[in-house]
Design a protein around this nucleic acid. Sequence first.
DNA 1: GATGAATGAGTCTTCATTCAT
DNA 2: TATGAATGAAGACTCATTCAT
Lengths: 221, 221, 221, 221
Amino acid sequence: MSATLPRAAHNRTRAPRWERRKESRPAELIAAALELFVEHGFAATRLDEIAARAGVSKGTLYLYFESKEDLFKAVIRENLVPLLADFQHSLEAIDEPATDSLARFLRTWWDCFGATRLAGIAKLILSEAAHFPDLARFFHDEVIARNDALLASIVQRGVARGELRPIDPRAACQFWLAPLVLKAIWSNSFDALYPPQTRLSPAQFLDAHIEFVLASARTAP
Amino acid sequence: MSATLPRAAHNRTRAPRWERRKESRPAELIAAALELFVEHGFAATRLDEIAARAGVSKGTLYLYFESKEDLFKAVIRENLVPLLADFQHSLEAIDEPATDSLARFLRTWWDCFGATRLAGIAKLILSEAAHFPDLARFFHDEVIARNDALLASIVQRGVARGELRPIDPRAACQFWLAPLVLKAIWSNSFDALYPPQTRLSPAQFLDAHIEFVLASARTAP
Amino acid sequence: MSATLPRAAHNRTRAPRWERRKESRPAELIAAALELFVEHGFAATRLDEIAARAGVSKGTLYLYFESKEDLFKAVIRENLVPLLADFQHSLEAIDEPATDSLARFLRTWWDCFGATRLAGIAKLILSEAAHFPDLARFFHDEVIARNDALLASIVQRGVARGELRPIDPRAACQFWLAPLVLKAIWSNSFDALYPPQTRLSPAQFLDAHIEFVLASARTAP
Amino acid sequence: MSATLPRAAHNRTRAPRWERRKESRPAELIAAALELFVEHGFAATRLDEIAARAGVSKGTLYLYFESKEDLFKAVIRENLVPLLADFQHSLEAIDEPATDSLARFLRTWWDCFGATRLAGIAKLILSEAAHFPDLARFFHDEVIARNDALLASIVQRGVARGELRPIDPRAACQFWLAPLVLKAIWSNSFDALYPPQTRLSPAQFLDAHIEFVLASARTAP
DNA sequence: GATGAATGAGTCTTCATTCAT
DNA sequence: TATGAATGAAGACTCATTCAT
């Protein structure tokens, strides 16, 4: 056996074949899996790859996840929860003009979701919704619906105070968020195909978008 | 399109793949394939299923397409060409106010793309972009870029004439189209999960959106 | 490709890579599977082996059987039915002394079951009963119970006519059949270990057994 | 027994496998393994299960047994030795009529073997004979052959004394033991499938069988 | 052309075995 | 000793592709 492992066979202070890392393993596996799932999709990602990227053997995956599907679900859930928490935390209510709230909401949304792995996750769920209806529903109810409700309440408050023009709050959400969402999602599909300098940078895009939203939302002075 | 696939060198008496062959077989196969690819994604769709839905045997597929990938590409291309043609045709330039052009563009876009299989195709390309970069590029250049250019020219004209407020034409496109695009794409992922009556109907959505766009675009009277 | 198949590459009248044999394939597969299941047991038999022995590829098995279990069940059922039919047929009621019936029953039993693959099948079911309770039940009800009933009726008739000593028919069956059953089953386990000449030949065993049964069954003259 | 396993050459300071080691660990492991092997068969029993049932970790098994096969062999051997000892002990020669000897032999056999785990072990060996020929041979020579010889000597004596009818002693053994053996073995396969009340109780079966044997064996008064 | 039986490379999953702790 | 995390070879099963009919 040592013949097949010609790395300091007699030096027993070096190079153990593997390490115990019970605590950190699941997170490492999920991280590796997220990257590959986003990159290749669920079906085209081989467990071999995930294991290799995480630096473990294939069998190790099954110590922590019952199946490929189970791993997929863990990837989605584990990544969504902290993102949602961050988002909630960053949006602590401040008493400010509704236009400021609006701008802050969009900027926070981009920082917490659009510019993060959520974009990849959203694309993932979109693609696999047919195979994982429970995840799709979870995503819809926990992320989309909540998000829309939050933005709607800001608009509602602004309209009531006369700071914003009278706009149907629920519809407005869709109009103002959709561009960000789409930008985020499509980045994951097309960015690899085009050199970055040919497109608007996310920061520029975000600034332009906020300016546009405010222009169309605030009441005439 | 054939210009992007210079593989004539290996042609063995066969016509290019995307040409209609005897009878309407290829079209039927492509139609069956489109449905299933949109429904299940590329990897999860079995050729058995496609053949069954088209009422032929599995082997027959290989008389018309070299491989599953080849069939997938044909599906995309064959469905995009007529859609693009329809769209161009419906938008024949009419001398009308820019706001009317804008409304007509959005409505036509929805009728020709959003409410059609393009939504499914877009979702498909999004999901499979990593595996079919040439298709993704084709889609981006032929559909997205052209589309944006068209809308941009309308905006530009309207601004020049003073009918629309001064808006960056390219950015505005994204803001005004994104909601429609997203609505179209997400329908394909989430509609199966929720009873139709819980969501805004496409017609209502479209009307509201157009109204909103016009409100924020037209110059104050 | 022809380089990897250096067998008369240009001679197209010879050596097709495979043949269509839709009709006979299932029987061939079942036959191969029976041998290997009896020889190695269910778990230790690899589908590769079965396919190889039947001269097909692994995938072909799945054209005819849904799973390894399904194949196993087919093996049991397909082999049991003809055996049972043979047995019924060979035992057509003849009006003869009960002792003759008894002898004929035992001899027929041996010819139809003990000396055939049923012995292997019985051993198989015995071993796998825990995994295939439905098969075990089927075997018990269809083979064991029927068999016992048949023998019991012979005994009953003989006792009623005064040709046999008064014996509990159901118990007697067990006493008279058990040696044959055991001989049959154990042959499959131990015959491979001992040269045949060290043990009683089946024919000798059968003769001795019948003689013994009759001696203990018939009424004193 | 160690004589049949002359592998002392490779012994690395370890005691032979089948010796009790510190505390009673090995015995507990073997007991757990026996249950599970009998219940599920060799291949279908996972070492995880055995370890869990014995209340240790999987790795601990390898402190006492070199491999799963080794454990299996230990299970067979460890359980056979005490059974055989009990049997020998219970059958201490007593000067009594041959018919009494016969009855006592059958009853003792049942108590020591048929009603004990030997039934499970026999079924086990039957099923796994192909994989463990040395165990099968051991079982045959040590258990079956000795057992038959013992019964044969009783018969021989009885015949010589005129207490039993002239019967071929070796054949008679098979006829008289087979029903008990079969009953014992089959119980392990079919008892789980049928409620106990539908079948003859072992005690009733034994009584009936002994009565029957004696009736056919003793000389006419 | 059309068929569908046959193929076999590719993947997920299991589990006996090893070894760092 | 004892543990159980980690391994990796093995095996069931799938399905795009081929090819005899």
